[in-house]
């Protein structure tokens, strides 16, 4: 095993180009577990801790460019307003110690369906900035990023540099089911974002399919129902039957398995419950802000 310690992003890309089998390690919260338990013996470890750019974020007009290694603790602390869904998701990650080390780049690189950030990124809308020494930068839409169980759209010579997440234009929520009240891997998770600017709702589901997925049919149904019912304008309470049907469609969009963490049946059920609740919470919040702004006007 060799330990590569690039001091800059350019050096990191060069190292990855030279050693495409090199395993990037940043927070180490996935890679080191695999090494400690002899599940993995990479030929090269590519340490990204000294690449300072990866720990920075910029808040732009429409989106946040979030460095791949920005720890979850920082997202919770500094980006709650801009990225509320991701901040909530960050808060559910493992433990304080892990949140101090792990970042979104690791979740994306591992591409486990159980990664906590994925549903929030899917719901918010995001692009993954990846780069190689040979071909430069490309932006991969989050919807195209996950390609299979623990597989993603990265080429062997590419590294994840940042993720561009759309700034919240409305309320966002995130829920995750685990069988413990802290420090738990998701049995399943659900992210939901209201986008009043475009009058759309986006979702993200974790641990309930081979990859993180959006509940597209459910989104289409809800977008249509909200539009037809004039909900965005009126801000009225969402009809229970609409919420229920949305929840059912979210559950139906899952393709879960039975495993030691939970049954497929439970995962489908829980996704439905979380979909209904997060829709209620976000919509109530949307109504609240509308009322408040009307009151102010």
């Amino acid at each position: 095993m060799d330990f590569l310690r690039p001091a800059s992003w350019e050096e990191a890309l060069a190292a990855k180009a030279e050693h495409p089998t090199a395993v990037p390690i940043a927070g180490g919260t996935d890679v080191m577990v695999e090494i400690n338990f002899d599940h993995r013996r990479p030929e090269y470890l590519l340490d990204l801790n000294r690449v300072g750019d990866l720990y920075e974020w910029e808040v732009g007009e429409d989106s946040v460019r979030l460095g791949a290694s920005v720890p979850y603790a920082k997202i919770m602390e500094h980006l709650r307003a801009e990225l509320p869904g991701l901040a909530l998701a960050s808060h559910t990650v493992a433990s304080p110690q892990i949140r101090n080390r792990g970042g979104v780049g690791g979740n994306l690189g591992t591409a486990s369906p159980a990664g906590d950030a994925h549903p929030a990124l899917l719901a918010a809308g995001a692009e993954v900035e990846v780069q190689s020494a040979a071909r430069g930068t490309r932006l991969v839409p989050i919807d195209d990023f996950y390609t299979g169980v623990k597989r993603n759209a990265l080429q062997p010579d590419e590294l994840i540099r940042a993720v561009h997440v759309r700034k919240a234009d409305g309320p966002q929520q995130y829920s995750k089911v685990g069988t413990r009240n802290a420090m738990v891997i998701a049995v399943c998770a659900f992210g939901l974002a209201l986008h009043p600017d475009t009058r759309t709702v986006r979702t993200g589901i974790g641990s309930a399919a081979p990859t993180p997925v959006r509940a597209a049919t459910a989104e289409d149904f809800l977008n249509a129902a909200l539009e037809e019912g004039g909900f965005w304008d009126s801000g009225k309470v969402i009809t229970p039957s609409v919420a229920r049907q949305f929840a059912d469609l979210c559950a139906a969009s899952c393709n879960p398995i039975d495993d030691v963490r939970g049954t497929a049946g439970y995962r489908r059920h829980a996704v439905g419950v979380m979909a209904r609740r997060t829709l209620t919470w976000t919509w109530e919040s949307y109504r609240g802000t509308r009322t408040a702004s009307e009151g102010a006007a």
Binding site: H91, T92, Q173, S175, K176, V177, G178, R277
Partner: peptide, 16 residues
């Protein structure tokens, strides 16, 4: 949420 079922995972705000 820390005092509710689900804890930090934010699964309920009292519902159910």
């Amino acid at each position: 949420v820390r005092q509710l079922p689900g804890g930090l995972s934010n699964t309920t705000h009292g519902e159910g």
